[in-house]
Computed example of a mutant assay.
Amino acid sequence: MTGLTAILACYNEGAQVEVAHREVCAALGSIEDLELLFVDDGSADDTLERLKRLAASDPRVHYISFARNFGLMAAITAGFRYAAEPWCVQLDADLQFPAAETWRLLEAAERGYDVVFGIRRERRDSWLRRAGAAGTHWVARHWLRIEVPQGASSFRVVRTAVARTIVNLPTANSHFVAKAPEIGARYTCVPVDHAPRSAGRSKFRLGRLAGDAFELLFGFSWRPLNVMYLLATLAAVFAAMLALLGFLGVATVPVLATGSVLMSGVSVACLAVVARYLHRRMLDARPRRLYYVREANIPIAPEDLLDGGESMIGPPRRTASLEVVS
Rank of each mutant, 00 (worst) to 15 (best):
G246R: 02
R280D: 10
S260Q: 13
G249M: 04
A235F: 00
V273W: 10
A236G: 11
Y277H: 04
V227A: 15
V274T: 08
L262Q: 04
L245C: 10
R280M: 13
G249Y: 03
H279W: 13
M263A: 14
A235P: 00
V274C: 09
S264K: 06
V253H: 09
R286G: 04
V268P: 01
Y229M: 12
L283D: 05
V268Y: 09
Y229F: 14
P254S: 07
V255D: 02
H279R: 13
A240E: 12
A232E: 07
A272F: 09
L256W: 03
L245D: 06
V273F: 06
L256T: 04
L283P: 00
V253D: 13
F247I: 02
V268K: 10
Y229L: 10
R281Q: 15
V268W: 07
L231N: 04
V237K: 10
H279P: 01
L242N: 07
Y277A: 01
V266I: 14
R280A: 12
V274Q: 05
A239W: 01
V227M: 13
G246I: 06
L283C: 11
L256N: 04
L230H: 07
V261N: 00
G259K: 01
L242F: 00
L262P: 00
F247A: 11
A257H: 07
M228E: 07
L230Y: 08
L234T: 12
A285H: 06
A240Y: 06
V273D: 05
S260D: 07
L231Q: 08
T252L: 07
V250Q: 02
V274I: 15
Y277C: 01
V227D: 08
R276H: 14
G249D: 11
M228H: 01
L245S: 06
L242I: 02
T252Y: 00
H279G: 13
L271D: 14
R276T: 14
L231T: 03
F247V: 07
L244Y: 06
V268G: 03
V268M: 09
L234I: 12
H279S: 14
L278H: 09
V266A: 05
V273M: 08
A275Q: 09
G246N: 05
F247W: 14
Y229H: 12
S264D: 12
V227I: 15
V268H: 11
A239D: 03
L244S: 11
L248D: 06
G265L: 15
V274N: 05
V250D: 04
L245W: 04
A269L: 15
A236S: 12
Y277K: 02
